[in-house]
């Protein structure tokens, strides 16, 4: 079995995953440092959102960095898309998309039981976090139009290899984050009488934990693939 080992891709993947895990570690440290859980739901008082945002940006920058090496081999379509990336229209549609996603997540939170007439800020923070974990990386990477194409098309032909790698990893992040936030709610009906059982905290922490778990799974897969290649090389 001749598996072509793409050292560059693996490096990219591992860096990507370590950024994600690092971000979550920083979040955990920050939470531990603040000790008081209740601020987690507030927008201005908590650093979770900025930290996660920085993390996602770093990942995108990482992707651009690796993508730079590919530049000479780009096809016409890929070049076209690259050119249209920083146009105002694309920026606007990207922002609109993220905003709509935040609203959608907020709506889903409310359907699943978030308070309707109060805790707007908490719901906003939670949905913003989910947007950051799931939708934003793709939008940052490809712009609004590109992101839509990626989601709703079978296989768009404008993606470069590095972008595909990154998108693959974003999937784990997004799925883990959403499932984690969803599953976090399980602690709230329990009768433990802890202050961290109040509404957005288990979900926020769950989202972070979930995305960490997703990244760990991704990391394991990458390492496993590397390991397989290594073994086959050793044998031959």
């Amino acid at each position: 079995m001749a598996v072509r080992f793409d050292a560059l891709k693996t490096k990219h993947q591992l860096f990507h995953v370590s950024i994600s895990l690092g971000v979550i570690l920083i979040c955990m440290t920050y939470m531990q440092y603040r000790r008081n859980w209740t601020h987690l739901g507030s927008f201005w008082d908590s650093l979770i959102i900025p930290i996660v945002f920085t993390g996602e940006m770093l990942k995108v920058i990482l992707c651009f960095y690796y993508g730079r090496l590919e530049d000479p081999t780009l096809t016409q379509k890929q070049k076209q898309r690259k050119a249209s990336y920083f146009t105002p229209k694309d920026l606007a549609s990207g922002l609109l998309l993220q905003f709509l996603c935040t609203v959608l997540y907020g709506f889903i939170c409310i359907i699943l039981g978030a308070p309707v007439l109060q805790n707007y800020e908490q719901t906003f923070v939670l949905s913003l976090l989910l947007t950051l974990l799931s939708v934003s990386p793709t939008v940052f990477l490809l712009g609004g139009g590109g992101a839509l194409q990626v989601w709703f098309c079978e296989k768009p032909d404008f993606l470069t290899k590095t972008e595909e790698t990154a998108l693959n990893l974003f999937k784990y992040n997004a799925l883990g984050g959403i499932l984690g936030a969803w599953a976090g709610s399980i602690v709230s009906p329990l009768d433990w009488d802890r202050d961290w059982q109040t509404y957005p905290i288990p979900n926020v922490v769950g989202a972070l934990m979930g995305s960490a778990l997703g990244n760990i799974v991704a990391c394991t897969r990458v390492l496993y693939a590397t390991f397989k290649v290594y073994m086959s090389k050793k044998r031959s």
Binding site: I108, I111, G113, S188, P189, L190, D191
Partner: peptide
């Protein structure tokens, strides 16, 4: 098996049923 989840069984239903509906809707829209 958990006494508090029996006491709050409604929360289980309030959470799971809309989740199914949202999931179905999302799939449909997608």
């Amino acid at each position: 098996a958990s006494s508090s989840l029996i006491e709050e069984e409604h929360q289980t239903w309030y959470y799971l049923t809309p989740t199914i509906l949202i999931y179905l809707t999302a799939q449909n829209v997608y």
